[in-house]
Design a protein around this nucleic acid. Structure first.
Lengths: 126, 126
DNA sequence: GGCAGTATAGGAAATACTCCAATACCGGAG
DNA sequence: CTCCGGTATTGGAGTATTTCCTATACTGCC
């Protein structure tokens, strides 16, 4: 038997999609990093496991530097201070661009899948 | 206007998929690195631009170390020596695993797309 | 001979990602 | 009251991944 544990074919990480996922979550309404991470973890395609919080915070920070999101501190609730992020107009523009990109990705994956099935599935109904 | 040039939403790189793409190309028949890169460049989803050859060679090498492919030098034709790769049984197994992974990816992307359209496309039929 | 195209390969930098630790605030158990 | 667990943000460091640039070499063409 083959050990595919360390093989990317197990699909452990499709990390690039965390970025549009953040945009999508924020498009649904302003939210702070911790909840963003939780919401992404709930999304299908992320395997029910929430992504590394560090990574989310870093993404949010870089997105703010790019002007895609704006943040404000939310001290209203009890508990530690929350940095509340919301989508800037540029972020919405970026999200719309992502829609086209995701369509292209899906098309590419569909084609790859077709080719893979054709190549691998030729005869293996054992 | 927003400069989205350096934004991943432009979809410049869906690099992770180069690995199954190599597998698919090799599943269609033995081939050497240079042609593999060209074939991948022709595939939809890679934007018609052929990937970095260095990367392909490195992938092929690591795939050989993992036992997914086997190589042999082809000196039959004129021109520089070609290292011809072909899929090993483990590589085919990996490719079959990739099919499941790609299906999961596509599903995840579909869901993300649905959410993105809902969030961004609410009202902008201008 | 020099140049372009085919073909492989390696170094080094840049980037991305993960794991781990630190800080801080709150509420409840002991 | 003190410690612990959950919420919340952040930084450091190490590893993995990717890209860019370069080197080598062979062939055919001008």
């Amino acid at each position: 038997m083959l050990e595919l544990v360390n093989c990317p074919c197990t699909g452990a990480t499709l990390d690039r999609l965390i970025q549009p996922a953040i945009l999508v979550v924020l498009a649904e309404g302003p939210l702070h990093g911790y909840r963003v991470a939780e919401r992404i973890g709930e999304m299908p395609g992320f395997g029910g496991q929430k992504p590394d919080a560090s990574g989310i915070y870093r993404f949010l920070k870089s997105m703010e530097q790019k002007g895609l999101v704006v943040s404000s501190w939310d001290l209203s609730d009890s508990g530690p201070a929350k940095k509340c992020y919301q989508l800037a107009p540029e972020g919405k523009e970026c999200l719309e661009h992502w829609i086209k990109t995701l369509e292209a990705y899906r098309h590419g994956i569909t084609e790859l899948l077709r080719a893979a099935r054709k190549a691998a599935g030729g005869r293996h109904e054992s």
